[in-house]
Design a protein around this nucleic acid. Sequence first.
DNA 1: CTGGATCCGGCAAGATACTG
DNA 2: CAGTATCTTGCCGGATCCAG
Lengths: 132, 132
Amino acid sequence: MSQRNTAVTDQLTAPTDASSPEDCPLPEVLALIGDKWSAQVLVQLGEGPHRFTQLERAIEGISRRMLTVSLRNLERNGLITRTVYPDSPPRVEYATTALVEDIRAPLEALAAWARYASPVIAAARHAYDNRH
Amino acid sequence: MSQRNTAVTDQLTAPTDASSPEDCPLPEVLALIGDKWSAQVLVQLGEGPHRFTQLERAIEGISRRMLTVSLRNLERNGLITRTVYPDSPPRVEYATTALVEDIRAPLEALAAWARYASPVIAAARHAYDNRH
DNA sequence: CTGGATCCGGCAAGATACTG
DNA sequence: CAGTATCTTGCCGGATCCAG
């Protein structure tokens, strides 16, 4: 199942025109991690395995319920693993799977873009609002 | 691992360690284009300027209302421009701004990842559902 | 042709309380 | 500690009609 595969990005560099937006599965990705919290969970887990409360504290503003929902969803889609240790008190650890390795780069690129674009966007928004 | 980066990401990931998830502005990006349609609109406009009806036909399943809403939102945030030509019947053209150029690469990387990961995810989901 | 305005159902998601 | 269950609210988004 979990084959390490770095050939993903090779498809990109390939000189195919590849820009046909018809078969662009971008919506699928966004359906997976495009919601309010999943991406942050993935980013946080990128730092290494985390326990439930650890995540809850690390991710500002998330509710217990939403954390649970996000984790279940990510687990269901095979993006994270959930390991229960038979301790007392109970201990559960979440970690990313190999699948996630290959999106970390584009995700960080997006984050980098955000840092750079944020003030520009704020200015554009302000200008637009003044115009209306 | 992956090495396909634009000027923007090169500049910004270089100086700092970039792996601190605290100041990760990923949620901002997702708030911008993480909704159901905006990303597809951007992708479509990446092919070149489009008129309203042209977009409506190109993007499968979008309603007029949602197209309008998405376009307004993108315009407000400075990601696209809206040009009105004083013709009869009225003609309006939408095009991406320079800001968008720099996210196209990571966005396509995400799409490529989706193509590769889709079957794996489907399998994981199926396995999970059987387990419950 | 390019939208705006309005109504409305359904789901996302916060708050709160309870449990093994 | 690591969740569930339930209630409630907000808003996303589809349908429909109207307008310049």
